[in-house]
C-alpha cells in the first residue's frame, strides 16, 4: 500500500494537479490577508481578545470569512483529487495490470484515499499557517494556548469534512466508468449539499411540517425543523462545528426558545473553554466522520467484489 500511496502523492503534488492546489493555497492566503488588513485598518472591528480566530470568522464587508472560503472551495479540491481515482485507471488500462500484482485490492483504494487525504491536509495546513503566520507578522504577537487549540481543532474538523468529499468523489469514480460523469455527479452532490438543502429543501420541508406561523413557538418549531433537516448535509454540520470552534462566545448549536435565550443572555459575555466548545460540536464531528466511513464501506463492497475486465 505504501507504494501506491507514494505514487499517488507524486501524482497529486506532481505537475498534473499541483497548479490547482497551489492556486487554492494562494487564494486562501490572499483572502486571509485581505481580511487581516481590513481589520488592522478598521481596528475595532476585531473582537480584540481572540484576534487570530477572528481572522477566520470575520468578513470584511466585501469578502465572506476565510471559513466560508474553506467550506466552499475545499470540497472542490477533495472532488478534484478523487473523481477519477479508479475510473482513470480503468480507461488507461492500468487497473487490470495493477490488480494482477500481489497486493490486496483494498490497498489500491486505501493508498489512493490516504494520499488524497494527506494532500488535503497539506493544502489546509499551508493555508491556515500562512494566514496565522502573516497575522503574527502584522500584529506582532503570537496566538495563545486557547487559540492554538481552537485553530488546530478547526483544522482537524475541516480535514474530516474534506475527507467526506474525497470519499464521495472516489465512490463516484468506482460507480461511474466515465470520468466526466463521475465529476458531474460529484459536483451535483456538492451543489446539493452546499446550496440546495440549506436554501430550498430544508425550508420547503419545514414549511410542510409547520404550515402556520402565528406565534413564537411555531416560529421556533419551524426553525428547528429546518435546522434538523439541513443537518443531512455535511456542509451544514461543518459550518456549525467550525463556527462554534472558532467562536469562544458561541455556546449553543440549535435554535433557541425565547426562554432559553434570555437565560443565556446573562452568561453570554464570558467565553467558554476550547474543551467545552469541542463538546458542543462533538456530535457533528462524529456524524461527518461516520458519513466518511459509510462512503468507504460502500466503495469497498462495490470495488472488492467487482470483476475487472480490461
Amino acid at each position: 500500500m505504501t507504494a501506491i500511496f507514494w505514487k499517488e502523492m507524486a501524482d497529486h503534488l506532481g505537475r498534473r494537479r499541483f497548479l490547482l492546489t497551489f492556486l487554492l493555497i494562494l487564494f486562501g492566503f490572499l483572502w486571509g490577508m485581505f481580511i487581516l488588513f481590513r481589520e488592522v485598518q478598521g481596528s475595532g472591528v476585531s473582537t480584540g481578545e481572540f484576534l487570530f480566530l477572528s481572522l477566520f470568522t470575520n468578513s470584511s464587508g466585501v469578502l465572506p470569512p476565510v471559513l466560508f472560503y474553506l467550506g466552499f472551495f475545499g470540497p472542490l479540491v477533495g472532488i478534484a483529487l478523487g473523481f477519477d481515482a479508479i475510473n482513470s485507471e480503468r480507461t488507461q488500462g492500468t487497473l487490470a495490470k495493477l490488480l494482477s500484482q500481489p497486493i490486496h485490492r483494498d490497498a489500491v483504494f486505501n493508498g489512493k484515499f490516504l494520499a488524497g487525504l494527506t494532500t488535503l491536509g497539506i493544502v489546509l495546513t499551508a493555508i491556515v499557517l500562512s494566514i496565522v503566520g502573516m497575522g503574527m507578522f502584522v500584529m506582532g504577537y503570537a496566538p495563545q494556548g486557547e487559540e492554538i487549540i481552537r485553530i488546530v481543532g478547526f483544522s482537524i474538523v475541516t480535514v474530516v469534512y474534506l475527507a467526506f468529499w474525497l470519499a464521495m468523489a472516489m465512490t463516484c469514480s468506482i460507480f461511474f466508468r466515465n470520468a466526466v460523469t463521475s465529476a458531474l455527479v460529484s459536483l451535483g452532490l456538492w451543489l446539493m449539499a452546499t446550496f440546495l438543502i440549506a436554501l430550498l429543501i430544508a425550508p420547503a420541508l419545514a414549511e410542510l411540517a409547520v404550515p402556520e406561523v402565528s406565534d413564537l413557538t411555531q416560529q421556533v418549531s419551524r426553525e428547528s425543523w429546518q435546522l434538523w433537516i439541513s443537518r443531512i448535509s455535511p456542509s451544514q454540520l461543518f459550518n456549525e462545528a467550525a463556527q462554534i470552534l472558532l467562536n469562544p462566545e458561541a455556546r449553543f448549536t440549535g435554535v433557541l426558545s425565547a426562554e432559553r435565550a434570555s437565560q443565556l443572555m446573562r452568561v453570554q459575555a464570558t467565553p467558554i473553554s476550547a474543551g467545552q466548545s469541542l463538546q458542543l460540536v462533538w456530535p457533528h464531528i462524529v456524524v461527518v466522520f461516520s458519513m466518511v466511513a459509510a462512503l468507504i464501506g460502500v466503495s469497498y463492497t462495490k470495488f472488492l467484489r467487482e470483476e475487472i475486465r480490461s
Binding site: R15, Q92, G93, A96, K97, S100, S310
Partner: peptide, 10 residues
C-alpha cells in the same frame, strides 16, 4: 499481461 495493457501516460 491484460488484453489492452495500459501505462501511466505521464
Amino acid at each position: 499481461l491484460p488484453e489492452a495493457v495500459g501505462f501511466y501516460p505521464d
